[in-house]
């Protein structure tokens, strides 16, 4: 038996919005400590890892781990019916055949109840190693979104490197080339700040198409963290308040 209630249902809406173009079908794991999801695309280029901790919910009860196989397009259709200020409750029983979604307006004047049929999915899981990266950048999520949007007009691959002073994004295409430097700012507890920490330089290339899809998570967080090392997958993390995160991993492009 699972029951999870989030007064700020808006957060769940944003989570689903940021996943739906990347994930077709996925197993959410409902566990006593929270809700998790791991999903890779069929070409194994990207991986999404989601965590929503139990204590971030207003009410959370889950006695044992329940895999909940979901078609994201279907879930997306249903959750679109929740207003931004609705509370959302998820409810599933142990047989894993359906998931109930209950949307309550703040004045409790309207209560909507949907039942989503679940799927029995055989999902590929990988062990995510505890990586230590050479470069860590924290920057405003809207700036990353803008970089992706602007550079996508020029080419398909983005090259990323960092110095102490700035993180640099470069692209080359048939029409020419472009680059954007995002400069680090002084003491960065401010949300709009940019911080760069570097153990050694890294120069990495990635598909702009996938990086752009990750930025669908921008409404979830004012800041985003990028971590990368030479010839390794990059980690792009959007924190979800104090309750968890969405992490995206993107396999690099390497010289042929």
């Amino acid at each position: 038996m699972l029951e999870a209630r989030l007064a700020q249902g808006n957060v769940l809406k944003k989570v689903i919005d940021s996943l739906r173009d990347l994930v077709n079908e996925a197993n959410f794991e409902f566990t006593p400590s929270g809700i998790t999801l791991q999903s890779m695309d069929s070409a194994h280029v990207i991986l999404v890892s989601l965590l929503l901790r139990a204590d971030g919910f207003d009410n959370y009860r889950c006695d044992r781990t329940i895999p909940v196989g979901i078609n994201m397009a279907s879930l997306s259709k249903i959750i679109r019916a929740a207003a931004n200020d609705d509370a959302i409750t998820l409810r599933a029983d142990d047989n894993g055949e359906s998931l109930n979604l209950i949307f309550e307006a703040p004045n409790a004047g309207r209560v909507s109840d949907y039942e989503l049929k679940l799927m029995d999915l055989d999902v590929e899981q990988v062990a995510l190693p505890d990586m230590s990266y050479d470069v860590t950048v924290r920057m405003p999520s809207e700036e990353l979104q803008r970089v992706c949007r602007d550079l996508s007009a020029v080419g398909e691959s983005v090259t990323i490197n960092a110095t102490k002073e700035s993180i640099n994004f470069g692209v080359k295409g048939e029409l020419g080339s472009g680059s954007i430097a995002i400069r680090s700012t002084a003491p960065v507890d401010k949300k709009e700040g940019v911080s760069i920490s570097m153990r050694q330089p890294a120069d990495v290339s990635f598909s702009l198409k996938f990086l752009t899809q990750f930025t669908k998570a921008t409404p979830l967080s004012e800041t985003v963290r990028l971590e990368f090392s030479n010839e390794c997958p990059m980690l792009v993390e959007y924190p979800i308040g104090d309750m968890g995160y969405i992490r995206f991993y993107l396999a690099p492009k390497v010289d042929d």
Binding site: M40, A43, H44, V45, I46, L47, E124, Q125, V126, A127, L128, P129, S157, S205, S207, C232, P233, Y249, A251, P252, K253, V254, D255, D256
Partner: peptide
């Protein structure tokens, strides 16, 4: 030109 790698070469299957 650049070649897209796969995550499976970095992350092992359990």
């Amino acid at each position: 030109s650049k070649r897209q790698t796969s995550l499976l070469s970095f992350f092992p299957s359990p």
